[in-house]
Computed example of a mutant assay.
Amino acid sequence: MFHKEKSIQLKNSASALYNNLSVLRIAPRRLTYFTVVHANVVNMAAFCALPSRDLLVVSSQKGIQMYESDGSIMVYWHALDTPEAPTAHAVFARGISAVSDNYICVGVSSGAVLVFDIPSKGSNITLSEVLEEHKEAITDIASECSGSQECLANLVTADDGGNMCVWKSGEEFQLLNKIPGLDITCSSVKLWKGTVLAGYGTGQIRLYEAVTGILHAEVNAHARWIYSLDIAPFSGLLLSAAEDSFVRVWHLAITPETNSVEIAHLHNECVTDTQICGAKFCDGDGYAFAVTGYDLSEIIRYVQL
């Protein structure tokens, strides 16, 4: 179904961080930007595509920086609160997502989710709200249906305990549902057509109805810790990547009669002797995807046959 294309060489290798790959496709210019985190100074870097602008958001132990999408100009800096006395817990930001028309959400180690209001241009970015439902460090954040009235739930946040919160964005974010964890880290999460797609440290993928929390499906997808999930929204293709060196492609389909979601396995790729830490589709149809691995100095690309 997919074949390997020429790799993109990196100056440095990728760190063993969850979701350590972000992709931004600029269709009019036929360009694709990739970002990968190296070493331990930066916790995460992600492209955030809003209707009016694209930003590169970088989080570190000291703060959150927002740049123009090519990284040329920093437009905003937000310092993280650090305790006066040393503690056993590190302070970091992890989990980044654009949501609705003008918000970017960033999760932090305290369990809080910072909501930034983004203007259509300029640097007048403000911290508009802090969501404090989680009690453990945020691992990932995902959104969908920007501005759609049909999509009630358009943001999901996950933490180290496997707990997830489902939100409706707006001038004040509304908590719609809390999906309890099983004390197993939910390392990667996506939202697709009202369904929460969650990857866990057990190697399992679970599909939940976002608003009710009903479990649609549970799959023993990998032999080891899942590091990354991604969804191609137009085709329903789901990508999963794990420490077991495998990247797997699945297909999701909604059954109209029961309004349930079914998952079917389509394809495997093995990156031999590599702890995979990032995997992303390069387009909304799932025509191509890219993969990063711990201590790997390249981005490996696969394209449909």
Rank of each mutant, 00 (worst) to 15 (best):
K4G: 13
I8D: 07
Q9K: 12
K11Y: 04
A16G: 12
L17I: 06
N19K: 06
V23K: 02
V23F: 00
L31A: 14
Y33A: 12
F34P: 00
V36A: 02
V36P: 01
N43H: 02
M44H: 05
F47T: 00
C48Y: 01
C48D: 09
A49T: 12
L50N: 04
V57G: 00
S59N: 08
K62F: 12
I64E: 15
Q65E: 13
M74N: 13
V75K: 00
W77Q: 15
H78C: 14
H78V: 01
A79S: 14
D81Y: 10
T82M: 05
E84M: 11
E84C: 08
P86M: 11
P86C: 09
T87W: 07
A90L: 14
A90I: 05
V91T: 13
V91Q: 13
A98M: 11
V99R: 00
S109V: 02
S110W: 04
G111P: 03
A112C: 09
A112Q: 10
P119R: 03
P119G: 05
G122P: 15
I125R: 03
V130Y: 04
L131D: 11
E132C: 10
E133D: 15
E133F: 02
K135Q: 15
T139N: 09
I141S: 01
A142R: 02
A142H: 00
A142W: 01
S143F: 05
S143V: 05
C145P: 01
S146P: 11
E150W: 06
L152Q: 06
V156H: 02
T157V: 13
A158F: 04
D160A: 14
N163D: 14
N163R: 07
M164Y: 06
C165F: 06
S169D: 10
G170I: 14
E172G: 00
L176N: 06
N177G: 06
N177A: 08
N177H: 08
V189K: 00
V189M: 01
K193R: 15
T195S: 12
A198S: 14
G199C: 05
G203N: 09
I205M: 12
R206C: 13
R206T: 10
L207F: 11
A210F: 04
A210L: 04
L215I: 14
L215V: 04
H216N: 10
E218W: 01
E218K: 05
A221K: 02
Y227N: 08
S228M: 11
L229R: 00
L229G: 02
P233S: 12
S235N: 12
S235T: 15
L238S: 01
L239S: 03
S240G: 06
A241V: 05
A242M: 06
F246N: 08
V247A: 09
H251Q: 13
A253C: 09
A253M: 15
A253Y: 09
S260R: 15
V261I: 08
V261K: 00
E262V: 10
I263P: 03
H265Q: 15
T272N: 10
T272A: 08
T274W: 00
Q275N: 11
Q275L: 14
C277P: 03
K280I: 04
F281K: 00
C282F: 03
G284M: 09
Y287A: 12
Y287P: 01
A288S: 15
A288G: 08
A290I: 03
G293S: 05
I299D: 06
Y302Q: 10
Y302F: 15
V303C: 07
Q304Y: 09
L305R: 10
L305Q: 08
